[in-house]
Simulated assay, not measured.
Amino acid sequence: MVAPLDREHLLAAVERSPRAAAAHDRAAWVGLFTADGRIEDPVGSRPHAGIPEIGRFYDTFIRPRDITFHRDFDVVFGTVVLRDLELEVSMGSAVTMYIPAFLRYDLREANGEWRFAELRAYWELPAMMLQFLRTGPGAITPGLRLSRDLLTIQRLRGTAGFMSGFRRVGARHKRLMQAFVDALARRDTAEASHALSPTAPITLGDSGPLDIAKLAQQLSGARPEKVIASGATVTVSLNSDHGRGLLFADVPWRGEAITRVRYFPA
């Protein structure tokens, strides 16, 4: 895992992001990233790589609006910080969006400070767009403003890259994940295995080997609290007999089985 002092420093580094966004401090926010940093927001869209593109990401999606981070809980695992939260995004005087999300920060030391090597945001673009449209006529002005910013700042390639975030695994894959978690919660490893491809790796964090029996032990009595499908990944926030945690499952677009499982306990 991670030493308490490192945990404190990593969380402090991550906390600089919502502060800089709330203050509309472009230099501070962009400066949180390493020179080769990447943003994939939402997961499944084309990443923004390098400081110039990260600056354009800020100008398109953060500068024009007020964003409040409502944090539920954090997981610190190695130099990865995972945050379960809801984003409150003011799109204008008449439209405020509430977006369930998971944020993953991969941190690296640079010039004596922890910086973001990668930021990945797991949220559902189609659900957000539906919520946006349901606000009615008030959505017209902020919608036109976002379209303008996409085309003028991101240009056609960047706009297409953002729109690719609409492509994600769907309800069928969420049901598969739900069945997998339910089986693990009652320690039915045979049933849980039916949801996995024969070669699917299971790990604690990104790389610690974990067999399905040990995962079932970790998730005994698990109760899913939030499920998000973003890109080719279904992520579940859950509460088990052993506490809170986040479970990530990779599922091919046309697949019927989970091909990779990662568990991050809080």
Rank of each mutant, 00 (worst) to 15 (best):
G245P: 04
L5N: 15
E40I: 04
I62P: 03
F57I: 00
R120G: 08
R155I: 04
D182F: 10
Y58W: 14
D6W: 02
R223D: 07
F116W: 06
E88N: 02
E86D: 11
Q131F: 02
F166D: 06
R223V: 09
T60G: 01
S93N: 14
A171D: 03
R260E: 15
E118C: 10
A160W: 15
S230M: 00
W29H: 01
E109T: 15
V234N: 03
Y58R: 04
I51Y: 01
H24W: 14
L146F: 14
L247D: 08
F77G: 00
L32Y: 10
L247H: 05
E225H: 11
T79Y: 06
P209I: 11
A179D: 13
D211K: 07
M128E: 14
S193H: 07
L156M: 07
R223K: 09
R168K: 07
V76A: 13
Y263F: 14
L150T: 00
G31D: 06
I62Q: 01
T60D: 01
R172T: 13
H48N: 00
H173R: 12
Y98R: 10
Q154D: 08
G165P: 04
R16V: 14
L133Q: 02
D72Y: 11
A121I: 05
G245N: 01
L133K: 05
V30E: 01
L5W: 10
D250Q: 14
F180K: 11
G31K: 08
S207F: 02
S45R: 02
L204G: 06
W123N: 06
H173T: 10
E40P: 04
T159V: 00
P201F: 11
E8N: 13
G37F: 05
F69K: 06
T233S: 03
Y105M: 11
G143S: 02
G170C: 10
W29C: 00
T203V: 01
W253M: 15
R108I: 14
Y105Q: 12
T135D: 05
P198W: 08
G37M: 01
L87I: 07
D84A: 13
F180N: 09
I39R: 02
E86Q: 07
Y58H: 11
A222E: 05
L215A: 14
L144W: 08
S90D: 12
T34L: 08
D25Y: 03
D84V: 06
Y58A: 03
R7D: 15
W253Q: 15
I62S: 01
T96Y: 04
V236G: 08
W29K: 02
I202D: 14
L210A: 13
G221I: 05
